[in-house]
Amino acid sequence: MAVAMRAFVQQGVADGAEWATVHGVAEKLLAHLNEPEALEQLAVANMPGQSSALVQATFAEFARDLGFVDESRGLFDSYENRALRPDYYLPVGANGILLEVERGKTTINNMDLLDFWKCHLCEHANYLFLMVPQELRQNATMSPRREFNTVVKRMASFFVPRNYTNVRGLCVFGY
């Protein structure tokens, strides 16, 4: 199954150079994730019982080649909860992108919303790349949960002008 991407961006940001750069990075990542070898690795990483760390391992080298730093520290030093860390961070000019990878707890434990909140708080990033399974099975016998569709529906509400946050743009990747 091909990796899907759904992008959201605030009005007034969509036509700017910063979003063009961010969206360009997203397109490069999406193209990489849709290469045959990457798709095979993602399929194995999304089997029941696997962790998001295995998903991360499928594209970690490519993310570093794009300039992402994994487990970037110091982005939340001005807050009481300094220990917050994104899975990956990429500086973009005076701004940046947080990249978060979820698997088993995506919507069950609201990790998608936690990742959005984390980006909302981050003084160094106003853009979020959120990777979630298109379909999630916690075990081999359960019916799949449609995580990508659920996350897209949940996140769309934040990109209605009356609900804007510090997250100017979001790309949800469904692997």
Rank of each mutant, 00 (worst) to 15 (best):
R137C: 13
N34E: 06
E61T: 14
M155T: 02
G12F: 06
Y79R: 05
L33N: 04
F62H: 10
R82F: 11
E40A: 14
A125C: 10
L98Y: 03
A43T: 13
R137A: 07
Y89T: 04
G169K: 09
N139L: 03
L98P: 02
M5T: 09
A83L: 13
G12E: 11
R82D: 07
N34Y: 10
N110F: 09
L75A: 09
L130A: 01
F148W: 07
E61W: 03
F129H: 03
V92T: 02
E100M: 00
L84R: 15
L29V: 15
L113E: 12
T150I: 15
T58M: 06
S52I: 00
F62P: 05
N46R: 12
D15S: 07
V101K: 04
Y127K: 10
V151F: 07
F159N: 14
I97D: 01
C171L: 00
V152R: 07
D87N: 13
Y88H: 05
T165C: 12
P86A: 15
F159M: 12
Y88K: 11
Q41M: 15
M131K: 00
A31T: 12
Q41F: 03
I97E: 01
K153T: 14
G174W: 05
A31R: 13
E40I: 09
Y127E: 10
C171A: 14
Q10H: 12
F159V: 12
A38I: 01
V22S: 01
V55R: 11
V3W: 13
A4D: 06
R168H: 15
K28G: 06
A94Y: 05
V13D: 01
I108D: 01
A57W: 05
T21K: 13
N139P: 01
G174S: 01
V69I: 13
L33S: 06
V22F: 08
N95A: 12
K118F: 02
F129P: 01
Q10P: 00
L33P: 07
V167W: 10
N149F: 09
L99W: 04
E35H: 08
G169D: 12
F159P: 08
S78F: 06
L170T: 02
E135M: 10
G16M: 00
D70Y: 09
H124Q: 12
Q134N: 11
F148A: 06
E135A: 08
K105R: 11
R64E: 02
V55N: 01
L66M: 04
E18T: 14
G74M: 07
D77H: 07
E102K: 11
C119W: 11
R103F: 05
A4H: 05
F148L: 02
D115W: 04
A38F: 00
V92C: 06
S52P: 00
M5H: 02
K105Q: 05
N34T: 06
F158L: 08
G12D: 09
M142C: 15
